[in-house]
């Protein structure tokens, strides 16, 4: 189920990106007046930041889902490994964190 949802999200994101990015590129290449580009650039940046954040969050969710199910299995049999399970469970958060940082950098 997880994979299906993810692939749908990716597809949707991809289509969205092309639709918006292509005209933006076209405008940039035409060397249009700077003033006219400013709002479009802002929009693309915002979108990019959103995607960076959103996709990385989805990826982290996917990873955590898998780790979570294995972790639950491990905990059922070896409760003493709880610390490890929690550590591993939390690791994918780094992906979200990186996405968050990229989003800030894009807008900064």
């Amino acid at each position: 189920m997880m994979e299906k949802r993810l692939s749908k999200a990716l597809l949707f994101g991809g289509v969205f990106l092309t639709v918006l990015m292509v005209p933006a590129m076209a405008f940039a290449q035409q060397a249009a007046p700077v003033v006219a580009v400013a709002w479009q650039l802002g929009a693309v940046k915002a979108l990019a930041a959103g995607l960076a954040m959103g996709l990385s969050a989805l990826a982290a969710g996917y990873a955590q889902g898998k780790i979570g199910s294995a972790g639950a299995g491990t905990l059922a049999e070896r409760p003493e490994a709880a610390i490890w399970v929690i550590t591993l469970q939390a690791l994918p958060e780094i992906i979200v964190l990186l996405g968050f940082v990229s989003a800030i950098l894009i807008n900064g």
Binding site: A70, G73, T74
Partner: peptide, 10 residues
């Protein structure tokens, strides 16, 4: 993931 983790624990 879940089943194999349990089996490995066992």
């Amino acid at each position: 993931g879940y089943g194999n983790a349990r089996v490995r624990g066992m």
